[in-house]
Structures are given as C-alpha cells and as structure tokens.
C-alpha cells in the first residue's frame, strides 16, 4: 500500500517507522490519518515511530497534525512515539505547548 508523502516501514514485530517525505501534505490530514492507521492496524502493528529528524522547526499546524495522528492511533490501540526531535523543533514546540501531547517521545527507536 502506498501512502502519498510518507514512507512507512515495518521495523520489527508490531513496530512501524514513519518517515515523512517532502511531499507530505498535512492539509489533507483526514485521509492521511485513515490510511496510516489502517495500514498499521491491518499489519497488526502496535507501535508507530514517527521520525522527526528532518524537521528543524515544528509549528502549531504540524504539531496539531502529530497530535491528531497520535489520538487516532490511540483509539486503535496503537502507541505513537515521536523520535529524533531536533533541539530547535523541541524549543519551538515548548513555546506553544499547553498540555502534554498525545504521543510519547524518544531519542530514537529503542534497541
């Protein structure tokens, strides 16, 4: 299954790695969330790692997309963890964050 704008790879039993590509259009988030969640659920995945390595800045719009995707996944019992958040991105998010995000964070995919 191909999802426009993201690269979704199975990285172990029940784990998926999502790498956003340059072509990712978060304005089309409803369709994207459905497609990603469906793909992970069909493969009996339980954990989605969202790689933020290539994002130096995360604005409120992008953060909202991450939060919504995490909540969608949670309703399907899929845990979402954002990995490799850049210092600049962490700084910008901390400026507007008012409550804890729906996703977890980690330095990278655990060994």
């Amino acid at each position: 299954m191909t999802i426009a704008g993201v690269h979704l790879t199975r990285i172990g039993k029940g784990n998926f790695l999502l790498e956003p590509l340059r072509g990712l259009n978060i304005l089309d988030q409803d369709q994207l969330m459905s497609q990603i969640a469906a793909h992970v659920q069909q493969a009996r995945g339980g954990h989605l790692y969202y790689d933020l390595n290539d994002l130096p800045v995360i604005d409120p719009l992008y953060f909202s997309w991450l939060d919504k995707l995490a909540r969608t996944c949670l309703t399907l019992n899929i845990k979402m963890t954002c990995i490799n958040m850049q210092p600049t991105a962490a700084f910008t998010v901390s400026q507007f964050l008012v409550k804890n995000p729906s996703f977890e964070t980690a330095l990278g995919v655990p060994d």
Binding site: P87, V93, Q95, L97
Partner: peptide, 12 residues
C-alpha cells in the same frame, strides 16, 4: 517549565 517540556519532547 518550557525547558522541562523541551527536554521531554526530545525524548529525555
């Protein structure tokens, strides 16, 4: 608090 949140966002 922002500093704590930023640290947590980075996964630490």
């Amino acid at each position: 608090i922002q500093m704590v949140r930023a640290v947590q966002l980075m996964g630490a």
